[in-house]
Design a protein around this nucleic acid. Structure first.
Length: 355
DNA sequence: AACACGGGGAT
DNA sequence: ATCCCAGTGTT
């Protein structure tokens, strides 16, 4: 047993937590049953994303792709359209890759074996534990940010939780604390506690079922935990976004590369002005895309913040006499057709500037 | 171990 | 406007 868990009333903590969870758990769409596919989809959506954001996406996704097989045979662009606005789009591309693998190698049944599960794209240590415990009642830890926050306070652990080795430590503690009677309620209970009571700021310790077990509360330092090093700040990148209209009132859109940021989503063409220079936009555009354009007027400025960069976008209206395009990446589309393509939120913000 | 990869919410 | 939230893949 870890030194840190000596003198810790593990059994009482675990039972109290599970009882609290049974009595207070939220009625969420993915808690209706133990269908492994539904649990899996919900856990992918919940990565880096809050419950309230996920709920409508989950409903829509299940409506369109009710079974693993439906998702396996779906068109990737349609799947991306369903994910549009949820962010971290590689999550859903990996998910579709993984369900196709399950279809091909496991007869369409989600494997209940840790080794097979973790080989699937998009399933890391957390999601593996979540699926195994929630869908299959297996005693595997599922350590997410909630769990690290709760345990850092309960056990008063002052290590920097952004460090990979510290996360491994938390997985070890979670494994030692684990309930073998009800792993699902144990894992979901810690996460639920982190979401509802043991919140990042102003935790509601007065309502906490495991208050008497919490070393941070006893010492009044719950607000100081967990310890996290600060993220470095984002680099700003200036772009000129071109809203290019032809004589048929169609707009030029471009498919982003199949790897990297916002992969395979569509956008209005963007010129990296820092590299190209304000005065060379038109010539650069013709060289890059083979289309002659004429700039008409500046429509406004928009900022879009990602976790690692900031796009500073100047919106410029332009016209062209082209009606067709050679370039595979490009398409002229009507306002109506525009709505059927998956766009990142950064470019959904352009819609009001379309005239 | 460090970095890429979205978007939403609170203050 | 600024800070907080936080899993997986790649290198």
């Amino acid at each position: 047993m870890s030194r840190i868990l000596q003198n810790f009333d593990n059994r009482n903590f675990r039972n109290t937590l599970i009882d609290w969870y049974q009595a207070n758990k939220r009625d969420l769409p993915w808690r209706q049953d133990q269908n492994p596919y539904r649990i899996w989809v919900s856990e992918i959506m919940l990565q880096q994303t809050q419950v309230d954001t996920v709920i409508p996406y989950f409903q829509q996704f299940m409506f369109k792709y009710p079974t693993l097989r439906d998702l396996a045979y779906a068109d990737e662009q349609d799947v991306l359209k369903t994910w549009e606005g949820l962010g971290y789009y590689s999550r859903v591309r990996n998910l579709q890759n993984a369900v196709r693998e399950v279809e091909a190698s496991y007869g369409g049944e989600v494997p209940d074996d840790p080794k097979q599960l973790e080989k699937l794209k998009g399933i890391g240590p957390y999601t593996k534990g979540a699926i195994l415990s929630i869908a299959f009642d297996q005693p595997e830890p599922a350590v997410d940010g909630n769990v690290m926050r709760v345990l850092s306070r309960v056990l008063k652990i002052e290590d920097d939780i952004t460090q990979p080795r510290v996360k491994k430590q938390f997985e070890q503690y979670a494994r030692e604390l684990m309930s073998y009677d009800d792993p699902s309620s144990f894992n979901q209970g810690i996460m639920e506690l982190g979401a509802l009571i043991c919140t990042p700021k102003e935790p509601m310790c007065m309502f906490c079922p495991v208050q008497e077990h919490c070393r941070a509360f006893q010492e009044g330092v719950e607000q100081e935990l967990p310890v996290k090093s600060k993220a470095k700040k984002q680099k700003k990148i200036p772009y000129t976004v071109l809203l290019i209209r032809n004589e048929r009132d169609e707009y030029l859109i471009e498919k982003r590369p199949e790897e990297g940021l916002l992969a395979n989503l569509w956008q209005f063409p963007m010129v990296p002005v820092a590299e190209i220079g304000q005065d060379h936009i038109v010539t650069w555009f013709e060289m890059e895309y083979g289309i002659k354009i004429e700039l008409s007027s500046k429509q406004g400025d928009l900022k879009h913040v990602f976790s690692h960069i900031i796009w500073q976008m100047e919106i410029v209206a332009a016209t062209t006499s082209n009606k067709a395009v050679e370039d595979e990446r490009l398409r002229f589309v009507s306002l109506q057709e525009l709505e059927t393509y998956p766009f990142p939120v950064s470019h959904q913000k352009m819609m009001p500037y379309i005239y």
